[in-house]
Structures are given as C-alpha cells and as structure tokens.
C-alpha cells in the first residue's frame, strides 16, 4: 500500500503527507510510503552517489554503519535522517551535506530511501556477541589498547558505540588485516588525513621516537607512543621523519579462530546499537 503513489505528486505535498503520517502514527516507517516509486528510485540513486561509499550501496555498511537495519538509534524518523544528512554527526565520520551539494528536495528523497532500507534488514551478522565479549576481554587482549565504556587503555580507537559507526565488513577487515587501510578523518579540518598513522622520528642528536601521529603541521609533529606518552617534536630538530603508511600498530588477529572473529564482530557490532 502506498499513500500518494501518484508519480506526479508534487514534492511539497509528499512531505506534508509524511508529516501528517508522522503526527498521526508513531510508526515512523510508514512515512516513507508517502513517496512515489519514481521518487524512491531517485532517492536510491542519490543515496548510492552520496552515501554508498561509506554506508554501502545496498545499505549494508562499510566504513560507516549499515543502514539496512531494523532501527537507526540516531535517526528514528524521516526528519531526523534529514537533520543528520544536513548537520552530520560531530565526532564521527559522518559529514554534513550542505544544500549546495544536496538540495532540500534531494535530501528528502535520500532520507526516504534510508527509511525504506530498514524494511530490507539486509545486515546479518553471524556470531554470538556474548562470546565475542569473552574473546575481547581474554584472548583478544583488546582492552590493552582500546577503551569500551570507560574501561581499557586509550592507545587505539575508542570502541564504545563502534557498532553505530562502522559496518560489520569494515570491522572484519580491521581485525583480519589492520594494516591494509588506516581509518581517515572524514570531516573537519583534517578531513582525508590518516588516523593512527605510525611514525618514526629521529632527532638530530639521534633519539628515536616511534608512535602514532596525533597531529602534524609544516613545523611540528605530535605523536603518541605505544606506552601512551605524548611527544611533541619540532621538525627543525628532526634528522628523519618516516610516515609508515601500510602499517598499523594494531596486531593482526591471526591467532584467533574464524569463529572467535565472528563472535568478536558480533560483539563489536552490538556496541552502542
């Protein structure tokens, strides 16, 4: 059943219909039905162009979280999806798309497609999150570098809520071959720069510092050592500064079984979900 399934329905009326549907029923999923097939198809194409790179063309996630899930905690309804498209999510990789990039009409269609994805619920995660937690805490020794809900050591990325920020395939790749691709900043002044980039700096007097880049400019570099010390260096004092792309300080999880990894992914995907 499609409300307003008239392909010629004016956009303004469609949105009005959505608002009415939302007001009338808490079941926000109905609101996407206010868009015609033609509009939803256009929304899908726009989604693929603007969102597919991180959220997956089918909404199954990637560097960003999967959207083909039963519930989007940050975006319960069409209006909230539009807000996130416009404003982004500070502190995450989700950038805001301004109207010059995605006009209001198109943002509404993209949001409609995102809402429609939840019916697909394509994202399936094998594994048992409870067992994954055990792996995380024991054999995985993950707390020695990661913080989850306040516990652990903050060398690598914080994993609190990681299930809301990354898709399961991205999590798998990060576990199996962490050096293959470092995460990059997706928004803000450092957009596009690698995070957790391993550095090796040698001062003119021969002192060697190794760690991950915290920041850098033309004159200075700041790094965090494997023991968590923060080192501030002036480039003028360095004889050598090696940026070790293709490396990660995160150890590959080769010692874990396939089942353990599945369980670990299920646990991570459940965080913040």
């Amino acid at each position: 059943m499609r409300q307003g399934a008239n392909g010629n329905a004016r956009f303004g009326l469609a949105i009005l219909g959505a608002a009415v549907a939302l007001a009338a029923s808490p079941l926000a999923a109905q609101e996407a039905l206010a868009f015609s097939d033609v509009e939803l198809e256009r929304g899908q194409r726009l989604y693929q162009a603007h969102c597919g790179r991180c959220h997956g063309v089918l909404g199954m996630g990637g560097e960003g979280p999967g959207l083909a899930v039963s519930r989007l905690p940050r975006a319960p309804d069409h209006a909230a999806v539009i807000d996130i498209i416009r404003d982004g999510i500070p502190g995450t990789g989700m950038p805001g798309l301004r109207a010059t990039i995605l006009p209001d009409e198109e943002a509404a269609l993209v949001a409609a497609h995102v809402i429609s994805l939840r019916q697909a619920q394509l994202v399936e995660i094998p594994g048992d999150p409870e067992r994954g937690r055990e792996v995380f805490e024991t054999t995985g020794v993950c707390y020695s570098c990661h913080i989850v809900e306040g516990r652990g050591v903050g060398i690598g990325p914080e994993l609190t809520g990681i299930g809301m920020r990354r898709g399961p395939e991205y999590l798998r790749a990060s576990l199996v071959d962490p050096s293959a691709e470092l995460p990059v900043f997706r928004s803000g002044a450092r957009s596009g720069f690698a995070q957790y980039l391993p550095l090796r700096a040698v001062t003119r007097d021969g002192t060697v510092y190794e760690g991950m880049r915290a920041n850098e400019d033309a004159f200075t570099v700041q790094l965090v050592t494997a023991t968590g010390s923060i080192v501030s260096l002036r480039k003028a004092d360095l004889a050598e500064l090696e940026k070790r792309f293709g490396h990660s300080l995160m150890p590959a999880t080769a010692s874990l079984s396939g089942e353990d990894i599945d369980n670990l992914i299920a646990y991570l995907a459940s965080l913040g979900g």
Binding site: E216, A218, F219
Partner: peptide, 21 residues
C-alpha cells in the same frame, strides 16, 4: 597555512625562520 601557522621563510633559501601557531 591551513594548519594555523603564520610563518617567515628566508627569501633566498626558503629556510623557515619563524612561525606562530
């Protein structure tokens, strides 16, 4: 630069002589 530095270079050699973050 975009990273916030206002700086001075030696006009003949390019050597950095001063910067302010």
């Amino acid at each position: 630069d975009n990273e916030g530095n206002i700086f001075a270079l030696d006009a003949e050699t390019g050597e950095p002589l001063w910067n302010f973050q």
